[in-house]
Simulated scan of single mutants.
Amino acid sequence: MKLFVISSAHLFKGEAALINQLFEAGMPVLHLRKENPDRQEYAGLISAVDECFHHRIALHQFHELSADFPGVKRLHYPEWMRKQPTQTVKNDEFTRSTSIHNLNELNEVQGFAYTFFGPVFDSFSKPGYKSRLAGDFKVPVMENTTPIIAIGGIDADKIEPLKQMGFEGAAVLGALWNDKEQALTNFNKIKRICSS
């Protein structure tokens, strides 16, 4: 099962060092998503991450920063951005991802490398952000669809159920950042289960 990490919603002291440790531990991709980000602080965080890991960072905001950081080759288009009529997402130079909240939107995301879908479980990081899925939920089997990555309330205990549901991957957020002291330990546990 593929594993993705979503950054903490807010900048914190020592964040770049922890991100570097997670990359060194095998974090495949970090989606850099901040609430109400300051462009300079956002760019500063990218600068503080070892350049050898830049190709594993997906920008959720300030896509134009990819010109300043040529190693960054991943762009994420949140649902609101993807649906803007003036938005252009065709660029083969980048790995492009997006998000959906309803599986009926799968035909809208052709041409993206993968899409996040959720919340699959009640969110750890967003109180009140509840799952809307039935307990016996299965990802619909369809030909030529964009890979669906589960997001929302995912920790080590949820990886096996996600495999049973048919998701191709998992994106973790609160399981790492809600207890930063244990982020590396929790990541390693989740990674091990995803790989088994």
Rank of each mutant, 00 (worst) to 15 (best):
S7Y: 07
P161N: 02
Y114C: 00
R82Y: 08
G111M: 00
V141K: 13
A43C: 01
F117G: 01
S8A: 14
E79P: 15
G111N: 00
M27N: 04
H55S: 07
A183Y: 10
G169P: 09
G44I: 02
L184N: 13
N36Y: 02
T88Q: 15
A58F: 04
F4Y: 15
L133Y: 10
H54C: 10
K2P: 06
N20T: 02
V49H: 01
P140C: 04
Q61C: 02
S123C: 08
L133I: 02
G153A: 06
A156K: 14
F69A: 06
L59E: 01
S8P: 14
R56Q: 06
E168W: 09
I100V: 05
E41P: 04
F167S: 11
A170I: 12
A170L: 04
G128E: 06
I100C: 06
L45T: 09
T88D: 15
G152K: 12
D68G: 10
K126V: 13
N36S: 05
F116K: 01
E93K: 13
R56T: 00
P28W: 13
D179M: 05
K83W: 13
N104C: 01
V5D: 02
K163S: 09
D38M: 06
L133H: 10
A9Y: 14
G71V: 05
S7T: 07
F116R: 00
P127R: 10
T145C: 14
A58N: 00
R39V: 02
R33G: 08
K34H: 02
F121T: 05
E35T: 02
G111S: 00
Q61T: 03
Q87E: 15
Q110E: 00
H101I: 03
N107R: 00
F23S: 08
A183R: 14
L133T: 04
D136A: 06
Y129K: 08
L173I: 15
T115D: 01
R39P: 04
N144P: 11
H10E: 12
G26M: 03
E51P: 01
M81I: 15
E15N: 12
E143D: 12
G152F: 07
F69I: 12
H55L: 03
A9P: 15
T185W: 11
Y77L: 09
S196D: 13
K126P: 08
D68F: 11
G153W: 14
S196N: 09
K90W: 03
K126C: 08
R192C: 03
I19T: 11
S7C: 11
I149Q: 05
M165T: 01
P37V: 01
Q61Y: 04
F12D: 10
E51R: 12
R33D: 05
R192V: 08
M1L: 09
M1N: 10
Q87V: 15
F12L: 07
P119M: 02
K163H: 06
